[in-house]
Design a protein around this nucleic acid. Structure first.
Length: 656
RNA sequence: GCUGCUGUAGCUCAGUGGUAGAGCGCGUCCUUGGUAAGGACGAGGUCAAGGGUUCAAAUCCCUUCAGCAGCUCCA
């Protein structure tokens, strides 16, 4: 008999050689049915693994996130099996679990796997699922690895060089080899797996893409087939619905439909804001500026183009060169003006700024500063340009020119804590204005390679922690993940689809003030170097706007809506009255349009609805006679007839 | 940057070597309407750009540019 311990502290006696499955059965038939894998002494293992005296055992069911990962990993095997049946020449490489599913990287000597093959593969998978084949763990010695398993297709008769390479690595690490078998399929795998293939009913292939063996572009090109899986059909359906919903909210599509912005081939990665998008952009900027002014900042404007020399001083030239735009000089040939000399070397080469901090350091340095001026807070909606690799540009999310809601706070180390707390309040207020109250915070501390004294780092990290705690902010600690020049706090906000976006950042910097020779006169009359705090709340106005478009699905709250109301005459006869209403609403400060088209009312309502305009104001014979308007709200439906004044008075939160 | 796919009217897309298409949008006219699509007619394209193959190229080949998906990068 062996005795094992359970999570609740109790213990169970089991016969020798008993497994977690036996344990589950002993505890209850329901648990036996729901058990997926077991956690034994902190390690996730198969239910079939025999237990030893004194083991601590936790039975995992579909409620445990670790169990879902096991399920998905088993699905990777299932998919690999199906693919090998359809593509007998395929060679398997690796098939891990990722955040919302799994993939398998496959080497195909010729041909390809596309989305069109998915139904076939999925049908084959469904067949294998029906077989309820148990997943069997097989241990092997290295000598056996090629011989013993040669007959199985998974390692291609022992000629699959990818698996051979992996086996060699395992050998080098001095670990044991294990294979997992279900039906006729066998694959090199650490495990664990679900009990049998019958668990893998709710699986779906999602996409296919290219990848490389060992993520090395010099090595073999592989085909990566992605899939996802859940324990229940409902969860799978919910996930697929989520994907649909995310697609429906894609800001690039809504940007086109709502005429917010456009892209042009002549300016890849540089969005053009159309009139309605410009209203959104400006509304965000105005809102930010208002809060900045009330929060003790001074606003500045610094140049877009400055000498290359500045970027040597800041260190960006050394570390950020590839992402910077540089200016080039062109001249006409003095003798032949029709000839243009390209790429002429400038005596003072210039660079387009990728960041605002050096400019702000210069502003600080403009004159001698007293400790009485600290903290000195410099803000700027600063337009920065950054070169991006061609494959990474993405709508408003990844562009080559964007506006940071940037600020730099110059302060004494003793002021850090107070400033961080103020920033937390600032960020919280900003995010909640957009209904983004769900966010999480990460604190990253000193990395191995860093500058600055222990004393300053310790003080800074202490100050960050204290401020987070003082504001009751739960945070995730990322030890060693800070910048080389200082620790930082990152804000990740969750949108209405619960997707996480990194927006705000607060970074302490012990390097830049030093590099630029920024200092202030202390109470002692001597010069001291201040600490610099970089901070951005939206991050990039453009990207934040993209996030908002998806967050609201284009149906912006009244204060943000590019067009807040549209006046719709029932027919041309009432255009005059409509004009007068339009003028009054515009005069009251409401962004209003009038629909002058010769269409039926229903059609114009539909248009207003598709454009997600908060209010449609309908005017016809009845309204003219009673001097009223008839209001239809995007969110609340028909509100009926009312006076224009009553409508305007009843508007809530239409300015911030 | 890498791999794969794509680029045809303002938008979404059909068109596999032989006269350039549809729906929506746009314009004109009819209609003068009551809360999500009334009707008729019409304008609109260097088929991404450049090169090649061919009697003939939107269509086949090459190069470049751009977009999409994923990877990688960046944070």
């Amino acid at each position: 008999m062996v005795a094992v311990r359970l999570p609740d502290g109790s213990s169970q006696q089991l016969p020798d050689g008993a497994s977690s499955a036996d344990l589950a059965a002993k505890i209850g038939s329901r648990l036996a049915k729901e058990a997926v894998v077991a956690e034994v002494n902190g390690k996730i293992v198969d239910l079939t693994l025999p237990l030893s005296e004194g083991d601590t055992v936790r039975i995992l069911t579909k409620k445990d996130s670790e169990a879902l990962e096991v399920l998905r990993h088993s699905c990777a095997h299932l998919m690999a099996d199906a693919i090998l049946r359809i593509f007998p020449n395929a060679q398997l490489t690796i098939g891990p679990v990722v955040e919302d599913g799994f993939y398998y990287d496959i080497y195909l000597p010729e041909g390809k796997i596309t989305q069109e093959d998915f139904p076939k593969i999925e049908a084959e998978m469904a067949n294998i699922v029906k077989g309820n084949h148990p997943f069997l763990r097989c241990a092997a010695t290295f000598d056996e690895a090629n011989e013993h398993y040669a007959r199985y297709r998974a390692i291609d008769g022992g000629h699959n060089k990818f698996k051979t390479e992996i086996i060699q690595d395992i050998k080098d690490r001095g670990e044991n080899l294990t294979f997992y078998k279900h039906g006729e399929f066998i694959d090199l795998c650490r495990g664990p797996h679900v009990p049998h293939t019958g668990w893998l009913k709710n699986v779906k292939l999602t996409k296919v893409s290219g990848s490389y063996w060992r993520a090395d572009a010099a090595r073999e090109q592989l085909i990566r087939v992605y899939g996802t899986a859940f324990f229940t059909k409902e969860e799978l359906d919910d996930y697929l619905k989520f994907l649909e919903e995310a697609k429906r909210r894609d800001h690039r599509v809504l940007g086109e439909q709502l005429e917010l912005f456009m892209m042009e081939d002549v300016a890849p990665g540089f969005p053009f804001f159309l009139p309605k998008g410009a209203i959104l952009w400006n509304t965000l900027a105005d809102y930010m500026k208002g809060i900045v002014r009330r929060s003790g900042y001074v606003e500045v404007k610094t140049p877009l183009i400055m000498s290359e020399q500045l970027w040597h001083t800041s260190g960006h030239y050394d570390n950020y060169l590839e992402n910077m735009f540089f200016t080039k000089l062109k001249l006409r040939d003095e003798k032949d003006p029709s000839k243009i000399l390209d790429n002429v070397a400038e005596e003072r080469p210039m660079a387009v700024k990728p960041m605002n901090c050096p400019g702000h350091a210069l502003v600080f340095k403009h004159r001698l500063r007293s400790h009485r001026e600290l903290p000195f807070r410099i803000a700027e909606l600063g337009l920065v340009h950054r070169r991006e690799l061609s494959g990474v540009r993405h709508g408003l999310f990844r562009v080559q020119a964007f506006t940071q809601d940037d600020a730099h706070l110059f302060c004494m180390p003793s002021q850090i804590e107070e400033e961080i707390m103020r920033l937390m309040d600032f960020f919280k207020e900003m995010y909640s204005a957009f209904g983004l109250d769900d966010f999480r915070v990460e604190l990253s501390t000193r990395p191995a390679k860093s500058i600055g004294s222990d004393a300053v780092w310790n003080e800074a990290e202490r100050a960050l922690k204290m401020s987070l705690e003082a504001r009751n902010m739960a945070y995730q600690l990322n030890p060693g993940d800070g910048a080389f020049y200082g620790p930082k706090i990152d804000f990740h906000i969750r949108d209405s689809l619960k997707r996480s976006w990194q927006c705000g950042t607060i970074q302490l910097d012990f390097s830049m003030p030093e590099r630029f020779g920024c200092n202030y006169v202390g109470t002692d009359g001597a010069k001291h170097t201040p600490v610099m705090i970089h901070r951005a709340c939206f991050g990039s106005v453009e990207r934040f706007l993209g996030i908002l478009i998806e967050h609201y699905a284009g149906a912006f709250p009244l204060w943000l809506s590019p067009i807040q109301a549209v006046v719709i005459p029932v027919s041309d006869k009432f255009l005059g009255y409509a004009e007068s209403i339009y003028l009054k609403l515009s005069g009251a400060g409401l962004r209003t349009e009038i629909n002058r088209k010769d269409d039926r009312l229903g059609y114009k309502i539909r248009e207003a609805s598709l454009q997600k305009i908060p209010y449609a104001i309908v005017v016809g014979e009845k309204e003219v006679e009673s001097s009223t308007i008839n209001v239809r709200s995007r969110d609340e439906g028909e509100l009926g007839a009312m006076s224009l004044d009553a409508f305007v008075d009843g508007l809530k939160d239409w300015r911030k």
